[in-house]
Amino acid sequence: MNDELDGFAVLLVDDHPLFRDGLATALRHQVPTLQVHAVATLDQALEVLCSDGEAFDLVLLDYRLPGEDGLRGAERLRARCPSVGIGLMSGVDDPTLPRRAYDAGLMAYLPKALELPALLSCLRRLANGETVFDDELLAPAISVAAVAGPRGLTGRQVDVLRHLATGASNKKIARALGISPATVKKHIEDIFDKMGASNRLQAVMMARDTLEQHDA
């Protein structure tokens, strides 16, 4: 049975070696096809991403990094690598962090206290293009995206579909939505399946018709 995390690539950025290496090992053990690369600093992360940024679907940043917090670090990452998805992890008891991460355009806020099965569930949601935040805090924002779209498409798939209808490339769609090209590709494959499209041109034509009916 295929797992949403098969081939999904995560760059973990955390300066605490026990947590960083332990988490990376645990994730690889639970899902051997999940690709996890771990580094200690933001500069190391930038070096890896600048070398091959498209190799990663998600960067998970610790909130407390040496010399700067993860939110400022996320701004630096997005400035250099705008197409990569970014999530924030933290062990800090600060109820404002999920909202601040959401407002900063990040894809997720994940408490370090999460049990491994819950973390894997969150990663699967991220692999499917969803955002992951505290549901109660962000209910108004998340509920809109969660509404089923035409042909059973998710809210994020509808977003991709709108860009697809303009003829935008995967890279352009990724940049506009703040997700990785690999995640866009997976969404498009799922859209093809749900719409019964056999190629991109057919999907673009069907997208335009579907969106016109949906927005009417």
Rank of each mutant, 00 (worst) to 15 (best):
R151I: 04
A139P: 10
Q202E: 15
S143C: 09
A104S: 14
H214S: 07
G178E: 04
Q213D: 11
D6Y: 01
E75I: 11
R175P: 08
G155H: 06
L110W: 04
A182P: 07
Y63T: 02
R64G: 06
I188S: 00
C122R: 00
Q35D: 02
R175A: 13
C50E: 15
D52V: 09
A216L: 06
S198V: 04
F19P: 07
V59N: 07
T96E: 15
D134G: 01
Q44H: 12
L23W: 01
L177E: 14
F8A: 03
D103C: 13
L137N: 01
T183F: 04
Y109D: 03
E75N: 12
Y102D: 09
E54S: 07
E68V: 10
S90F: 10
I188N: 03
A216F: 00
I188H: 10
L77C: 02
C122T: 04
V92Q: 15
D14E: 11
D43P: 06
L119Q: 05
E115G: 06
D69A: 09
K171Y: 13
G178H: 11
R156H: 00
G67Q: 12
H16W: 14
T41K: 14
I142A: 15
L123G: 08
L11C: 07
V10C: 08
K112Q: 12
T183L: 05
P117G: 10
